[in-house]
Design a protein around this nucleic acid. Structure first.
Lengths: 206, 206
DNA sequence: AAGTCCATCCTACTTTGAGTAGGTTACCGG
DNA sequence: CCGGTAACCTACTCAAAGTAGGATGGACTT
C-alpha cells in the first residue's frame, strides 16, 4: 500500500478480491457490525465499486454465501463418488461435512450467517442455495423412502441435525470429525430403539 | 390514537406493550429492516423510552426472543408430564413443538431470527437461552446414553433436526403437526437400518 | 504516434436509522 | 397544595448504507 500506484484490475479479479476480503470481515465482525467502508478500504478500492459489483450489502453477503455453499457442496459430493451403498454414501458425506467445517472455518462461519437475511428480498435466493445442498441428501434418502414427501422431510431432518451438531462441535475442539460422524451416523442408522433394547438387556443382566 | 390524551402507564405494562409490538414488527420486517422509530410510534411512545427499557435494538430483540423461548419451553415441558416412558416423553415433546410452531407463528418466526445476533455481544445470552431448551432433550437422551458427551451431542442433533423440519413444514401447510411428529419420531426411533431391512425384504419378495 | 472510447475507478454527497443529552409533566404521598 | 420521582418528550449527534456525476488508465484503431 502506502503510496503504491494503484493499478487497474479486470472485473473478475477484483470480484475475487472483494469476496475474499468480505468473507473475512463478515466472519470477524458479523454481518451487522461489518461496514462497507471498511471492506472497501481493505480491498484498496472505493465504496461505489462494491456497489457496482454487488448492488448492496446483502448482495455482497449473498455472493460470499453462494461461494461457500458451492465449496461445501463440492466437498460433500466428491466424497460420495466411490460409495458402495447408500449407507456408505451417507457416512462419507457426513465425514466430508464435518471435516469441511473444521478446515474451512471462515466459509462455515459465513453459512451460519445466512439466517441474518431472513425476511429480506434475498431470502428466496438463500433458500435456493440451501436447496441445492439438501438435494444431495434427498437423493440418498430416496433409496430408503418410497414416499417422496417423507424423503424430503428426512433430508431436511438430516441437514438440520448435522448443522446443529457442527455448531455444537465448535465448543468442543476435542471432538474430531470422525467422532461427530459417528454420533450422527449412529443416530441416523440405528436410532434410539436399539439403545433402548440394550438398556433392557443391561437391566436383566444385573 | 389521533389526538387522544396519552395516559402514563406503569413500567411493566409498557414493557409488555413494547415487546408485543416489537415481536410483530421484527417478524414482519425482519430484524435488520425493522426500525426503532417505527416500533416506538406503533407503541405510541417516543424512541428514548425503548432505549430506557431495553438499552439497544439488540436488547429489544433479545427480550422478545427470551419470551418466545420461555413459551416454547413451557409448552414442551408441560407436554411431557404424563409420559410413561422416555420414548413417550420424546414423542409428546415433539408433538408439542410442532403444534407450537403452527399455533404461535410470531413466536416461532422470532426464534428463527436469533441467528441474526451471531457475532454480537448478545451471542452468549442467546446461547444460554437456547441451552435452556436443549437441556430438556438432554434429560430425555440421558436415558439412552451412558456417555454424557454423546447424550449432549444427540440432544443438539434432535433440536437441530426438528428446527429444520419445522422450517420445511412451513412450505407445506398440508403437513400436520402429527405427520411431522411421525416423520421425526420414525427417524429418531427406528433409524434408517430398519428401512434398509424392509427394502431387502421387498427385493426378495419379487 | 496520436486520438478515441469505455471499463474502471474516484470524490463528495444524501439519507436513514441507531443511540443520547437534557429538559418537561403527570401522578402519588404527604 | 406541594415536593419528588417515574414516566415521558423534543431535538439533537453520528455512523454507515447507498448514489450522482465526473475523472483516467490503457487497449485498440488509424
Amino acid at each position: 500500500m502506502t503510496t503504491a500506484k494503484r493499478k487497474r484490475v479486470p472485473r473478475v479479479e477484483r470480484e475475487r478480491q472483494m469476496i475474499e476480503v468480505a468473507e473475512r470481515v463478515f466472519t470477524e465482525r458479523g454481518y451487522g457490525a461489518a461496514s462497507m467502508d471498511e471492506i472497501a478500504e481493505l480491498v484498496g478500492v472505493s465504496k461505489p465499486m462494491l456497489y457496482e459489483y454487488f448492488h448492496s450489502k446483502e448482495g455482497l453477503l449473498l455472493a460470499c454465501i453462494r461461494q461457500s455453499r458451492a465449496a461445501l457442496r463440492e466437498a460433500t459430493e466428491q466424497a460420495t463418488v466411490g460409495a458402495v451403498s447408500p449407507e456408505d454414501a451417507l457416512r462419507r458425506g457426513l465425514l466430508a461435512f464435518f471435516v469441511f467445517i473444521r478446515e474451512r472455518r471462515e466459509a462455515w462461519s459465513l453459512l451460519r450467517h445466512e439466517m441474518a437475511l431472513i425476511g429480506t428480498p434475498a431470502a428466496d435466493e438463500i433458500e435456493q442455495t440451501r436447496r441445492q445442498q439438501t438435494d444431495l441428501i434427498v437423493a440418498v434418502m430416496s433409496e430408503y423412502f418410497d414416499d417422496e414427501l417423507r424423503a424430503e422431510a428426512s433430508a431436511e431432518f438430516v441437514v438440520g441435525a448435522c448443522e446443529r451438531l457442527a455448531i455444537w462441535c465448535e465448543r468442543f475442539p476435542d471432538v474430531t470429525p470422525e467422532m461427530a460422524t459417528d454420533y450422527a451416523m449412529d443416530m441416523l442408522w440405528s436410532g434410539l430403539s436399539r439403545r433402548a433394547a440394550d438398556m433392557r438387556v443391561n437391566l436383566h443382566a444385573h
